[in-house]
Structures are given as C-alpha cells and as structure tokens.
C-alpha cells in the first residue's frame, strides 16, 4: 500500500480512535453536504461527551441530530440550531451546552484553526452578547473583538470526489464549511461519493489538498433535502 493511500473500506476504520470527550469539527450546511455515514458510525460507537463544531446540528432524525438521541453531545458550537425539537429540549433541560457563534466567525475559526492562527479580530458581534468577555481593540477607529480559532481531535467532511491520496473536490453548495473543517482536525475523515485514482483529478481544480485528509471512505448518501422549493417548468 502506498504511503499516501488514505482509502479505508469500513466505517469502523474511518472513525477508529474517536473517544469520549473529543471535539469533532463537522462540515455541512443544514443537511447539505454532511458526512451521513460517519455520523451514523459515531452513533453506533456510542461515544459520549462530544463537543461538536458545526454550522447546524441536523434535524431530529437526520444529520448530527441523531447524536442527540442517546445524549452523545455535551456541547455544540454552531450559528443556527432552529430545526431540532430534541436539541431544544436538551438545551432547556440543561443537558446540552450551546455556544452560538456568528456564521462567518465560525467559518473563520475553523479556517484559522487549520492554518495555525490561534485567534483573530473581527467586527462581527461587537456590541452584542457575542462580545461578552472578549478583548476589544480598535483599528482605524473601529472596534473589533478577539475570537479564538478551533481545532478538533477529528474533522468529518463530505466531498463529491476524492482520489486515493485524499485530494477532494466538492459539488455545488455542498462545499460550504467542508473545506475549512477538513483543515481543522488532527484526524480528518472524508466521506465521498466517488473515489478515483491519483492523477484523475485536475490538480488546479482540487478544493482540498490531500495533506489535510487522513482517511477517505466511499459512502452511500441519502442526500435528504430540508426544504424542497420548485417552480413550474
């Protein structure tokens, strides 16, 4: 096996090493571009006390929402959590901690985390509850708040195509948070629709270079749509 061959063939191998208390950085926007099979494997493993960093937390019976069913999640860092009744119940019961984070700040926290930048200043959230307890500094007369970046023991992402070396290509808006999440995990696992041989992806068209990716698995996706909206043909 080549030293760069990242392909694994079982979900157990894909998520091997995940342990209680770990932080998981997850790609996806709503139910679009989520690593469905990796989430299902975390549920099967029963790992608990997880901190999940993701834009959203799925719905009751799909996406990251399924990890709430057995109370596997301790804390969620997200920008919007509105589609999930179980989430609401556990939050109100004090069983779940949530850190609401502006969407752009969340994306930048992942990007910076993966890029070795521990914190950054942003105007987003200044003067709001998000700024509470954070350092404020003025640049050119405008106040900014200091936001710390995030990394995790694991990152789980969904891509369209991967080659065996872990180079990734995303499709349409299923890209979303996945490229940043992929950089922010000590172990990054990509669940993809198709695996090709090295050399088959055009080098200049690769979104996530394989250096960020440790494991690649071919998944089967339901690709559930949260809100089907159509026009007449």
């Amino acid at each position: 096996m080549s030293g760069f061959d990242k392909v694994v063939t079982s979900y157990a191998d894909a998520m091997a090493g995940l342990k209680d208390g770990d932080t998981i950085i997850a790609g996806g926007f709503g139910l679009c571009g989520i690593p469905e099979g990796l989430i299902a494997e975390i549920k099967r493993m029963g790992t608990t006390d997880l901190t999940v960093v993701s834009n959203n937390c799925g719905v009751d019976d799909f996406g990251l929402g399924v990890l709430l069913q057995d109370k596997q999640i301790k804390k969620v860092i997200a920008s919007y959590v509105g589609e999930n009744a179980l989430f609401e119940k556990q939050l109100l019961d004090g069983e779940l901690e949530v850190e609401l984070t502006p969407q752009g700040t969340l994306a930048e926290k992942m990007r910076a985390g993966g890029a070795g930048i521990p914190a950054f200043y942003t105007a987003t959230g200044y003067g709001t509850p998000v700024a509470e307890g954070k350092e404020v500094k003025e640049f050119d007369g405008r106040p900014y708040i200091l936001e710390e970046s995030v990394t995790g023991e694991f990152a789980i992402v969904k891509a369209w195509k991967a080659d065996r070396y872990g180079n990734l290509v995303f499709r349409h808006t299923a890209m979303n948070f996945n490229p940043m999440a992929a950089t922010a995990g000590k172990i990054t696992v990509a669940e993809v629709e198709e695996i090709v041989e090295p050399g088959e992806l055009e080098p200049s068209q690769i979104h996530t270079p394989g250096i960020y990716v440790n494991r690649v698995i071919k998944g089967n996706f339901e690709k559930r749509i949260e809100r089907v909206t159509t026009r007449k043909a």
Partner: peptide, 25 residues
C-alpha cells in the same frame, strides 16, 4: 431539483448564468 444546490434558507435553488460557488470562509 438537486440536493447539493441550496440557498442560505436551506431551500433548493439554481445558479444564475455566471454564478460562482465557494466555501463559507
């Protein structure tokens, strides 16, 4: 209809002519 093509309201949409798609950062 394409599950990989949504807007920020999580509704299915299309890309207009000359559109660009990029990551959240």
């Amino acid at each position: 209809l394409d599950a990989d093509m949504i807007n920020a309201g999580k509704e299915t949409v299309t890309a207009a002519k000359g559109a660009a798609i990029f990551n959240s950062a």
